[in-house]
């Protein structure tokens, strides 16, 4: 009777631990491919370092109710897109171009004195003003594109060292921190602060643009190498890890079975059960732990494939952006030289 009770108790405990271990193991396995998402995080006051790419979604501010902007900033260029779809590309030390979804483009070309020398906007209100009494600013009102309100402009232009030299903001009455925007007052004019335009020499300009393209490319390569290295580090870490839940599962199952066998073959009920069960449990832990570890490696392998694809996509996107921006720069060189 006592032997049967001990056997029942031993097996029950074994099954209980095994269940807990199994649940724990499979809940960790079922998580599948962990996400290393680069999607934008909510951000209202973002600080931007030189070269950093920032995504900012502005939410929760009543004055922003009409706009839900994503701002991407980096390499001195700013691209914004949002619910009111438009794309603003700011090229430091050169011109500013603005693409609309319909394919319309307005460009502003300024000379060294920030005089507007060329634009394709029909009705542009344009004047000089001073912002904070320090930097020269120009206000532009777009009345030609059929908007009921001017579209907001915002962002920061940086020089080669990464220092913020100019701030583009809208409306003119509001100074905005980096990475934020404001609501649009219908009928009001927007203020856009401009950069000093260097003397234009088409050949030199194109060469600089190409060199910039090469640097941009190197940066994309470095980013890819970092991305790949991090993915491989995560994989290697999985190789050296130990799997607890699987080991417990294996130990419990084999321990329980070992104990039951010990009783069945008539070993001394006390020492026999414990010793047989323990040795069985040890072997089970080894097998169970090894199997769990293998599952971890399989999971890490799938994650690595996923990470490689992401790194590659990011790299190709960066390359595309380099190409587009370089082409734009070269295009501006030609416009600026009067060709």
């Amino acid at each position: 009777m006592g032997k049967q009770l001990a056997s029942a108790l031993y097996i029950s405990i074994g099954i209980l631990i095994a269940s807990a271990g199994l649940v724990s193991t499979f809940s960790s396995i079922d998580q599948g491919v962990p996400s290393y998402s680069t999607s934008p995080q909510p951000c209202t006051t973002c600080s931007v370092k030189s070269g950093e790419v920032l995504h900012a979604r502005l939410v929760g501010n009543p004055s922003l109710s009409n706009f839900d902007w994503h701002v991407q900033q980096g390499r001195g260029a700013l691209i914004a897109a949002g619910r009111n779809p438009a794309e603003l590309i700011v090229i430091p030390d050169q011109e500013i171009r603005w693409t609309h979804p319909g394919g319309e483009l307005f460009s502003l070309v300024f000379d060294e004195a920030d005089n507007l020398v060329r634009t394709n906007i029909a009705n542009t209100s344009f004047f000089h003003s001073y912002f904070n009494g320090v930097q020269e600013s120009v206000a532009v009102m777009d009345t030609s594109l059929g908007h009921t309100a001017p579209v907001p402009l915002f962002g920061t232009i940086r020089d080669a060292s990464g220092r913020a030299t100019h701030v583009i903001h809208y409306p003119s009455q509001t100074t905005l921190p980096i990475g934020t925007s404001s609501s649009v007052v219908p009928g009001s004019s927007g203020m856009m602060q401009l950069v000093q335009r260097p003397p234009v020499d088409a050949i030199q300009c194109i060469e600089l643009a190409n060199r910039w393209g090469e640097d941009c490319l190197s940066e994309a390569w470095d980013t890819w190498v970092d991305c790949k290295r991090l993915a491989e580090q995560r994989f290697t870490m999985a190789l050296y890890s130990f799997t607890g839940p699987a080991a417990i599962t294996g130990a419990a199952i084999v321990g329980g079975v070992g104990g039951a066998i010990g009783i069945a073959i008539g070993l001394p009920s006390g020492v026999g059960i414990v010793l047989t069960g323990s040795i069985g449990a040890f072997g089970g832990a080894i097998l169970g732990g090894s199997f769990g570890h293998l599952l971890d490696i399989l999971n890490a392998y799938r994650q690595l494939q996923f990470d490689f694809e992401n790194c590659l996509d990011d790299y190709l996107d960066a390359m595309k952006q380099c190409r587009a921006e370089t082409a734009l720069k070269i295009g501006f060189c030609t416009v600026g030289a009067g060709n």
């Binding site: 060469e207 190409n210 090469e214 390569w221 590659l312 790299y315 390359m319 190409r323 370089t326």
Partner: peptide, 17 residues
């Protein structure tokens, strides 16, 4: 794969220059 792509693009920029 990426190295080949990178080298091709870099060569194009250099050719442009």
């Amino acid at each position: 794969k990426v190295k080949a792509h990178f080298e091709k693009e870099t060569a194009e920029y250099k050719m442009g220059r």
